[in-house]
């Protein structure tokens, strides 16, 4: 398996990440995303695609899309809180490479050309991926908002620290 991994982490993966970055930015432009968000959009897309590819080596496309979506939504939420803007901006462009566009397209195509059994296979695959994406989004969206704010963790850390100091004092 190591060999397979080693093979995998080569030029092709690097190229893929670069392309994911560029493609995501292209899509962001099509959706009129403000210019200041291009870089973060591209980054989100590239990170999501990287995780997707790595996961795909070991599992099915659906599970891989689940993990890829997790990463995309996670990063999107962090960026949203950071940059104070709607999450859709990062989400749409970032998830797009994983959206079963080709799958749904082939399903429709086979339906149109009357190849029903092919259509069912493609269609089920697309539905699985779509559900994986839904699951991924729901998982991260249900995390409370505070967790993404640095302030929250800083405060928690400070409280714990104070508590520990107080305990020490009491002991001595």
């Amino acid at each position: 398996m190591m060999e397979r991994l080693a093979d995998f982490f080569t030029v092709s993966l690097f190229l893929q990440i670069v392309y994911a970055f560029l493609g995501t930015v292209g899509y962001a432009i099509l959706f009129n995303v403000p210019r200041r968000f291009y870089l973060s959009c591209g980054f989100t897309g590239a990170a999501g695609w990287f995780v997707y590819r790595v996961a795909e080596v070991h599992t099915s496309a659906a599970v891989a899309s689940f993990f890829g979506t997790l990463v995309v939504v996670l990063i999107s939420r962090m960026l949203t809180v950071r940059l104070k803007c709607p999450i859709t901006i990062f989400l749409v462009a970032g998830i797009l490479p994983m959206v079963p566009g080709a799958g749904v397209y082939y399903t429709a195509y086979y339906l149109v050309t009357n190849q029903l059994s092919e259509a069912v296979v493609r269609g089920m695959g697309a539905v699985k991926v779509a559900f994986a994406i839904v699951l991924g989004i729901v998982c991260i969206v249900s995390i409370p908002r505070e967790f993404f704010q640095l302030r929250y963790w800083r405060q928690r850390f400070r409280l714990n620290h104070l508590r520990r100091l107080r305990l020490k004092k009491n002991k001595s």
Partner: peptide, 30 residues
């Protein structure tokens, strides 16, 4: 306003090419 026309066209091309490659097309195809 929307993005400028030629900019949108180039962006569409860019995402076509890049995503095509990601979804399994070879370099020439993308």
């Amino acid at each position: 306003p929307q993005q400028k026309g030629y900019f949108q066209i180039l962006a569409a091309g860019l995402s076509s090419g890049c995503y095509g490659y990601l979804l399994g097309a070879n370099l020439l195809e993308s």
